Simulated assay, not measured.
Amino acid sequence: MSRWRELLDPELEPVLDALPAVDFVDYQRFRAASDAGAAARAREVEPGEIEIADREVGPDGRTASVRLYRPPARPEPRPAVLHLHGGGFVSGSSDASHARNVELSRELGAVVVSVDYRRAPEHPYPAPLDDCETALRWLIAAATDLGVDPGRIALHGVSAGGALAAGLAIRVRGELAPCFQFLSVPITDDRLATASMLRYDDTPIWSRRVGEVSWAHYLGDLAPGSADVPAEAAPGRASIDDLRGLPPAYVAVMELDPLCDEGLSYAAMLAEAGVAVEAHRFPGAFHAAFTAEPSAGMSRRYLAEEIAVLARALGMER
């Protein structure tokens, strides 16, 4: 057993017993409970002046389910954020990130589009990534109607959503041009071979064992760890040439997260490819700890930095 408890930020200790045990083996039971809890929390959010609508969108006959957040109208085009939620490709929804998306729209003055992409294992790769691409293409095509500046659209992905955001940037490189990619505690590599992944098999929220099942569900007929897995599915497999010309990026990782080292490795590869990238390793924190205990000092720093980084990337820095 790893020594992560000795390194844990003391402010995070009180929430450990309340954290759900992630179970992607009995994924239907876990997903149902997760969805119900997220929906209940979403109903408690006061959106204020943020206009919210669930829509089916997409150009060329393809559609994706999205939740659209729009702040009060401005005379000039606004930036936009395409949000891709976490949940290990298996769970998660727009409800789960609803409160934060309201805050992002309000704080940034941005249109936020949260994609309810289809989930594995019923819909393995490439279906979730296809939905994210459909939503991005719709957002660009509908920019004038939405009052959005198509040159200021940031990709924003958390955990599995980080994999999808990074994979989407690779897929549309040279054709579509998001201005930024914000990758928070991203899943990037199905090979599960980094030092942090091998070290942490019993950490909260995410562990190597959870990752094994998650990747098996997402990749479907593709065997995790095999040579057949493409970089757009597992961005950690990308070559330097795959990454050249991608938009600037920010990568946030947590010290006690099995995903820590692969996130840092991906940031280093982006830098080697000439992509402007910033990486921040938050000490003493487990996977997505900022959602489990948002009042902790570490979480407050992360959440403030998230707003600051996106504001700068979107030209909204104050």
Rank of each mutant, 00 (worst) to 15 (best):
residue 298 M to V: 12
residue 256 L to I: 04
residue 256 L to K: 08
residue 264 L to I: 06
residue 178 P to W: 14
residue 177 A to R: 15
residue 274 G to E: 04
residue 85 H to D: 04
residue 120 A to I: 02
residue 240 I to C: 10
residue 131 D to I: 00
residue 255 E to P: 07
residue 54 D to W: 01
residue 29 R to Y: 07
residue 209 R to G: 14
residue 263 G to E: 03
residue 140 I to C: 07
residue 279 A to P: 00
residue 216 A to N: 08
residue 221 D to R: 14
residue 32 A to M: 09
residue 64 A to D: 02
residue 266 Y to F: 15
residue 210 V to C: 12
residue 300 R to P: 00
residue 257 D to L: 07
residue 4 W to R: 05
residue 275 V to T: 07
residue 306 E to K: 06
residue 220 G to F: 13
residue 289 A to S: 14
residue 302 Y to S: 01
residue 237 R to V: 06
residue 46 E to C: 10
residue 171 R to K: 12
residue 242 D to Q: 07
residue 86 G to K: 00
residue 190 D to P: 01
residue 99 A to S: 08
residue 218 Y to D: 02
residue 253 V to S: 04
residue 97 S to C: 09
residue 70 R to A: 14
residue 305 E to F: 10
residue 28 Q to P: 02
residue 153 I to C: 07
residue 18 A to G: 15
residue 220 G to T: 09
residue 8 L to V: 10
residue 226 S to A: 13
residue 102 V to S: 06
residue 110 A to K: 01
residue 162 G to Q: 02
residue 105 S to T: 03
residue 192 L to A: 11
residue 307 I to Q: 09
residue 279 A to Q: 06
residue 72 P to S: 15
residue 15 V to Y: 11
residue 145 D to R: 11
residue 260 C to R: 15
residue 38 A to D: 12
residue 48 G to R: 05
residue 15 V to D: 05
residue 109 G to A: 12
residue 254 M to I: 01
residue 39 A to I: 02
residue 31 R to L: 13
residue 127 A to I: 15
residue 195 A to M: 09
residue 77 P to F: 11
residue 125 Y to H: 14
residue 44 E to W: 05
residue 122 E to P: 07
residue 201 D to Y: 03
residue 39 A to H: 10
residue 312 R to D: 09
residue 318 R to G: 14
residue 107 E to W: 06
residue 185 V to C: 12
residue 56 E to D: 10
residue 180 F to C: 04
residue 144 T to C: 07
residue 56 E to Y: 11
residue 236 G to F: 03
residue 27 Y to F: 15
residue 317 E to T: 11
residue 51 E to D: 11
residue 62 R to V: 11
residue 200 Y to R: 01
residue 166 A to D: 05
residue 199 R to M: 07
residue 117 Y to V: 04
residue 60 D to I: 01
residue 193 A to S: 15
residue 141 A to Q: 06
residue 66 V to H: 04
residue 161 G to V: 00
residue 53 A to I: 04
residue 248 P to F: 14
residue 169 A to M: 05
residue 303 L to C: 03
residue 73 A to G: 08
residue 121 P to N: 08
residue 151 G to R: 06
residue 131 D to W: 00
residue 291 T to H: 13
residue 16 L to I: 08
residue 221 D to P: 01
residue 61 G to D: 08
residue 71 P to E: 10
residue 283 P to I: 06
residue 98 H to V: 02
residue 232 E to S: 01
residue 205 I to G: 04
residue 305 E to S: 12
residue 185 V to I: 13
residue 106 R to Q: 11
residue 48 G to C: 09
residue 292 A to K: 08
residue 33 A to W: 07
